[in-house]
Nucleic acid binder design. Structure first.
Lengths: 124, 124
DNA sequence: AGCTTGCATCGACAGACATCGATACAAGGG
DNA sequence: CCCTTGTATCGATGTCTGTCGATGCAAGCT
């Protein structure tokens, strides 16, 4: 159940912090956009939030599904997209499947969105 | 030309940092997802990167368009979405329109994705 | 083995989105 | 004034995506 994240993974072309500092090339932009796209849905944002904020670091799908007015297949679909984006990971234990955050990925996103000390603000 | 960002704006229901700390409610998730969705396209990520990394803080559309193999209306469309998400702002000066980053919005995103000192990592 | 419960996958469908060419609008120059 | 150049909007079109019910698969129980 362990897909590896395209963003958390250290990559040849992209090593570095901020999107706001240096223009990204097409490949870097495409990989980043995949992760942002995974976060571009209210259900998935809330899923990630529920998973990440869970004491103990994991949560069972059976505790996730009832938090939404959506069918179980739909929740499963959203979890799959989050997993493919490298934002979460899953593990089966017995009958249940547990999801947990992949903090490396959110860390990387946060770094990418952080501007280097006092980004030039069009200095008026 | 100044739409205001739903995320940079201080809001009644949401005041606080990390998505990773406390479960978001539906409204908070929906607003956040709008911004992430705006970043969920390779062209827009690269546009934002080109705009933000520009020395002087602004860039003319006429310098943006030739950086892509896309029609001018398509670029204009993507810029509009970034603007509506509160990620960039624009100003017309003479014939040209200049875009600049709205750093409050990216700052807020970065904060939201930052975990409070040592998020419980499923402590194995 | 059969039953039950938890979760994932499949196929279908409606709505959303990226893209284009054509066109409209804004501003400056002849 | 018209013409040109820069940018936004419009309408059409093909593709992608969120959602569902039905079904399949995994694991434990009896």
């Amino acid at each position: 159940m362990s897909n590896q994240s395209p963003v958390a993974r250290s990559r040849s072309s992209a090593c570095c912090p901020s999107l706001l500092e240096t223009p990204l090339d097409e490949d870097q932009s495409a990989e980043l956009a995949k992760v942002f796209k995974a976060l571009g849905d209210p259900v998935r944002v809330r899923l990630l939030s529920l998973i990440a904020s869970r004491a103990g670091g994991e949560i069972c799908v059976c505790d996730l599904t009832p938090a939404f007015d959506l069918s179980q297949p739909t929740i499963s679909h959203h979890l799959k997209l989050l997993r493919q984006a490298g934002l979460i990971d899953s593990e089966r234990r017995g009958t249940w499947v547990y999801y947990r955050l992949v903090p490396e990925t959110t860390d990387r996103l946060a770094a990418i969105l952080t501007r280097p000390a006092g980004l030039p603000l069009a200095t008026p």
